[in-house]
Simulated assay, not measured.
Amino acid sequence: MTMHQTQTPAITGKAGFEELVPSRYALRVGDIDVLVVSDGVLPLPTETMSTNADPDARAAWFKDMFLGPDAFDWALNVLVVRSGEQTILVDAGLGGQFPGFPRAGQFPKRLEAAGIDLGSVTDIIITHMHMDHIGGLLVEEVKNRLRPDVRIHVAATEVEFWKSPDFSLTSMPAPVPEVLRSTAAEFIKQYQDNVRTFDDEYQVAPGVLAKLTGGHTPGHSVVYINSGGQRLTFAGDALFPVAFEHPDWHNGFEHDPEESVRVRVRLMQEAAASGELFVATHLPFPSVGRVAIEGEGFRWIAAFWDY
């Protein structure tokens, strides 16, 4: 499978000409159309990426990446998937209701620029219920345009966890846990009639499978897209930019850091063995590439854009 063969921009629409940088990237996995959409970026402390790392090693990594030294922009990516008669949104970004993050919450206008009507979305997969994945569903311009019978798929473990979330193993900026808790509660309140829970895995549409991994949150899930002998994995928050060279570095937003390490190592080993396309929420847009094993760690190989 080559990127030239797979990256047919089958989901297209009018250009968002007011923006000077691209904000969506289309590809095809077999017979399934996939659109990676940038929800924007939000600034975070570099320490959040590596809470258990030696400070000097952390500083050296961010310097080598021309980032930091104290903060960097964290990318936010969501997916739109078309399989058969279904249009599936995978995660919904941050939304615009949180002060201090003016460059995030972009996906509604970017879907519109792509010619995609939110009213055409039949299903939504939520990888986990952190605010940068569900916040976009709480803004009025989204709520008012979604169809009343849209199906929202979330792991049952995730819904149960957020009834009384445990932050004891996280290391977040002080105000964040309460905002995460209240946003998750509001999401369930707003969409309880639309939520469809699954235990281990659920086929949302032909070739589109949501699969429980745990780790980052107890109900964190990934999405596998399989068609025509080709595969793409959307890894959600199972890994972050530091993960390839330092898979053992903990992220401050992980509710079970040790399990998170096991999950991301397993996912990257799978991706390296299969050669599949790999996308994640917080890898730099468009976050389309492949994973290779390198020494005791991994290497990220960004795909050549087809344009």
Rank of each mutant, 00 (worst) to 15 (best):
K63N: 14
E296G: 14
K189E: 11
H246M: 04
T127Q: 12
T12R: 10
A302I: 08
E259D: 10
F278L: 12
S120M: 08
D199K: 12
R145Y: 02
A71E: 11
D64W: 00
L209E: 11
T233G: 05
V204F: 03
Y202W: 13
G228R: 06
G84K: 12
T12V: 14
V291R: 03
G252N: 05
S120L: 06
G236Y: 05
A184P: 01
M65F: 09
Y224H: 13
L146W: 10
I88T: 01
Y307E: 12
E245H: 08
G95I: 09
G236E: 07
N251A: 12
M268G: 13
Q5W: 05
V176Q: 09
T122W: 02
K63L: 13
P175Q: 05
Y307T: 10
F253Y: 08
A292R: 12
R24A: 09
Q106H: 03
I126G: 01
H282R: 09
L138P: 08
E158I: 02
R266S: 12
L42A: 07
L277N: 10
G295M: 09
T197M: 06
E178R: 13
A59K: 15
T6M: 11
T157Q: 14
V142C: 09
G30R: 05
F240Y: 15
N251E: 11
V179E: 07
F62V: 14
Q106Y: 00
W74P: 00
H128F: 02
E245M: 09
F161W: 08
G95K: 01
D70V: 09
F298L: 08
G100K: 09
S50I: 03
R24W: 05
I126V: 14
P108N: 10
P108E: 04
G95Y: 02
E178S: 13
Q269M: 12
A26K: 01
G297H: 07
Q106G: 04
D256Y: 03
F244S: 04
V81R: 01
Q106M: 14
A53I: 08
E112C: 07
M268Y: 14
G105R: 07
V179Y: 07
D39I: 00
Q7R: 12
W305K: 15
E294F: 00
H250E: 09
D166S: 04
T233P: 03
Q192I: 12
P241N: 03
T233E: 09
D73W: 08
E19T: 15
V279W: 00
P9K: 11
E47Q: 14
R290G: 15
F66R: 15
E201Y: 06
G297Q: 06
E276D: 15
L232K: 14
K63H: 13
Q7Y: 10
L67Q: 15
V222T: 14
E186N: 13
S83K: 02
A272K: 06
I32H: 00
I301A: 02
H153D: 02
F240L: 10
P102Q: 11
V261E: 00
A184I: 01
P22G: 10
F244V: 08
E160G: 03
A53D: 04
V291A: 07
D200P: 04
G236W: 03
T87F: 05
F278K: 10
M268I: 15
